[in-house]
């Protein structure tokens, strides 16, 4: 009789704990580079990535055209990563590009660099 009470309780505890761990893991899951670009980058770089976002008219320095193979291939992947994580100033560029370290994880920024390479259809400077 006692065994029949304890066993379901142990199973229920296990299922609950497993579900809780899963839900916590889910809340910290990575966003796709496309979604991150869509929310964080589009405001200045534009929906097409050409640097003509809704904020662009207010900017003293035109946002980079991510579709330009010529411009993007002049940049090393490491510098693109650094610009996103630490801001434009960290790579000698505009203060208008802030650090997105609080918006994206390092892993998400790495994926973003790959996403940008897909947009320019180009490789980074070696």
């Amino acid at each position: 009789m006692r065994k029949t009470t304890i066993v379901p309780a142990v199973i229920a505890t296990f299922v609950f704990s497993f579900g809780f761990v899963l839900s916590m893991a889910g809340s910290a899951s990575a966003e796709s580079a496309a979604d991150n670009y869509n929310l964080f980058c589009v405001q200045c770089h534009g929906t097409k990535g050409t640097g003509k976002g809704v904020n662009a008219p207010a900017l003293a320095v035109a946002p980079r055209n991510h579709t330009s193979a010529k411009d993007m291939s002049a940049l090393k992947d490491a510098d693109v990563f650094k610009a996103i994580k630490e801001g434009g100033v960290a790579v000698g560029k505009s203060t208008q590009m802030p650090s997105f370290a609080s918006n994206m994880t390092d892993a998400e920024i790495t994926e973003m660099v790959k996403h940008l390479r897909g947009m320019c259809k180009c490789e980074g400077k070696k």
């Binding site: 929310l39 589009v42 405001q43 534009g46 929906t47 097409k48 003509k52 809704v54």
Partner: peptide
């Protein structure tokens, strides 16, 4: 903002 953008040419 992202939900309210229209594109004209390559300009948002």
């Amino acid at each position: 903002y992202r939900n309210n953008i229209k594109t004209e040419g390559d300009k948002d």
